[in-house]
Amino acid sequence: MDLFVQLTINGVIAGAIYALIALGFALIFGVTKFFNLAHGAVAVVGGYAAFFFLEHAGLGVLPAAALAVCVAGMVGFALHKTVFLPLRRRQATNLVLLIAALGLLTVIQALIAMFFGSQFHPLSQFAGAQEVYRIAGGAITLVQLIIIISALAVFGLLTLFLKKTKFGKAVKAIGDDEEVAQIVGINTHAIIGYVFFIGSAIAGLGGVLVGFDTGIEPTMGLSLLLKGIIAAIVGGVGSLSGAVLGAFLLGLAENLGIWHISGEWKDAIAFGILIFFLIWRPRGILPR
């Protein structure tokens, strides 16, 4: 029974991390309609930026994390400006954008490995000893609690922001039809730029939190990204609540799945779920 509780808690924690990646991914996909595979790299940038500010600039935990999130956002924005926007201006197909994004992911991960080395860095060494809470026979650390709370908070704030502001309406309009949105006077390129910043910052937050929970390594971008994409597709492509729902389902399925199967099969379980959904329910649980 204790094992079940612990696996459920682990599933929720994993789900919260996937949700942070999936939210940014779904937000960007909502306006650009292509699979931004570079999104995973942005999460790694967040994690390593935090590492840099903690280790080399000697900042405190909170300012370092906040700055790292901004850096991740700016990198996402820069990728949009330098690569995706020129390609989209030229009416490049989705496949071209996807391959360019794949190239960016490879480049960024390689750059980070060259500067910081490819070993594993736990960020928790900078935060001191952590409190451990016990819930119904399972254990959860403070960082893990913060992960769950921030995922839910980001989801809530983002939904509210998109619903209540003019910016949110513009995002929705671009998502429905970019050309028409442009015709009625929405500055689509600027809005999409901001969306890249926000989405990437959220992914960066995910990267930072993963760093404090377990640690960071250059290659984690791809696995984080893939889980985020699976979550977004399982939940319903382009829908924020779908992305969050999909993320928690995926986290729980992976962790409860290893109750009977050995832990190394986590990735295979996740992709099994993806293929299953792609075949039988390609629009996800909550289609937009």
Binding site: V83, I99, A100, L102, G103, L104, L105, T106, V107, Q109, A110, L111, A113, M114
Partner: peptide
Amino acid sequence: RLLLYGLALV
């Protein structure tokens, strides 16, 4: 090497 492959794609 990885950097080159990625850069080539982009």
